[in-house]
């Protein structure tokens, strides 16, 4: 079963807010000068910010703030966030892989930015809704 797709817009302001909330002040997430000096095309989102947005999608699909019992991802490609009002977009889709007798649902997640996968092996186990 496919779950309804969700789209998250990400701007530079979001990265600054996430840096403050998470304590991750790595300058590749706010300085184009430093990001390009280490070979990146520009400022990129924190991998953990992308993971958090996808986690939001999972929580929303589950329908409860405390439903996620296991959640893991591999970061495969940076999410480049341009310095403009639009920023970029992360699209998240998922499919239910298994519903267990123990009341758990396992889902496989796909997250893309500009048509390219930014995560692989993204999986979550949630308490089965309802």
């Amino acid at each position: 079963m496919e779950l309804p797709a969700k789209t998250f817009r990400v701007t530079r302001a979001d990265l600054i807010r996430y840096a403050g909330a998470s304590g991750d002040f790595n300058p590749i997430h706010w300085s184009d000068r430093i990001a390009t000096s280490v070979g990146l095309p520009g400022v990129i989102a924190h991998g953990m910010f992308t993971m958090a947005l996808v986690g939001r999608a999972v929580t929303e699909w589950a329908g409860a703030a405390d439903a996620v019992v296991d959640y893991g991802v591999r970061f495969t490609r940076p999410v480049v966030v341009p310095d403009d009002e639009q920023g970029t977009e992360i699209e998240v889709t998922a499919a239910v892989r298994e519903v267990t007798d123990a009341g758990l649902t396992r889902i496989d997640i796909t997250a893309t930015c500009g048509g390219e996968k930014v995560l692989s092996q993204a999986k979550a186990t949630i308490r089965t809704p309802g």
């Binding site: 909330a21 986690g55 409860a64």
Partner: peptide, 29 residues
Amino acid sequence: TAIGATEPAHHDPAAARALGHPDVVAPPT
């Protein structure tokens, strides 16, 4: 707020208690 998670149980202790938790619940990451 920084990740845009608006579920009441992340913000409102009463909503968290309704889910059986003593106070607001942290998002998964």
